[in-house]
Computed example of a mutant assay.
Amino acid sequence: MDKAMPRILNARQIAFSSDRIHDCKESLGTEFHLMIDHALSVGWSLDEVAVALNGLVAEEIAVPERAITLH
């Protein structure tokens, strides 16, 4: 069953399927962890990496041309 979960993000309401989010996280997980491992290997701390990734995500979501799609 596809469950829509409303979220407020940058004053926009979006809906997404928890199943799709789970599948997306699973799909991206390996590359995501490789990226973190690479950043750690060149000297960044885990806290620095986490804050930087969070900032990049916030910037990406804020771009109007990259409007979030609903599924």
Rank of each mutant, 00 (worst) to 15 (best):
V51L: 07
E48W: 04
L28W: 01
A52V: 11
H38L: 11
R12V: 10
H33P: 09
A50H: 07
L46N: 03
I8T: 12
A11I: 03
S41R: 06
G55I: 12
V42W: 00
E59P: 03
Q13K: 08
V42F: 00
G29T: 00
L53A: 03
A39T: 04
I21G: 09
S41I: 03
A62P: 08
S41P: 08
K3I: 05
G29W: 00
Q13D: 06
I68C: 11
V49F: 02
E60G: 07
L28N: 07
L34P: 02
V57R: 11
W44V: 01
L34F: 02
I14F: 07
A52Q: 08
L9D: 15
L53Y: 00
H22T: 13
E65I: 07
L70I: 10
L46Q: 05
F16W: 08
I36R: 07
S27L: 04
V63G: 03
L34G: 11
D19V: 15
E48F: 06
T30M: 00
A52L: 13
A62D: 13
D47H: 03
I61D: 09
A62G: 08
M5V: 14
R20Y: 09
S45F: 00
A67M: 09
F16N: 10
L46M: 07
E59V: 11
K25F: 01
K3C: 00
K25C: 07
W44I: 01
E60W: 04
E26G: 15
A67T: 10
A39E: 11
A50G: 12
H38M: 08
H33N: 14
Q13H: 08
E31P: 01
A58R: 13
H22I: 02
V57W: 01
N10D: 09
H71N: 15
N54P: 00
C24F: 11
A39P: 04
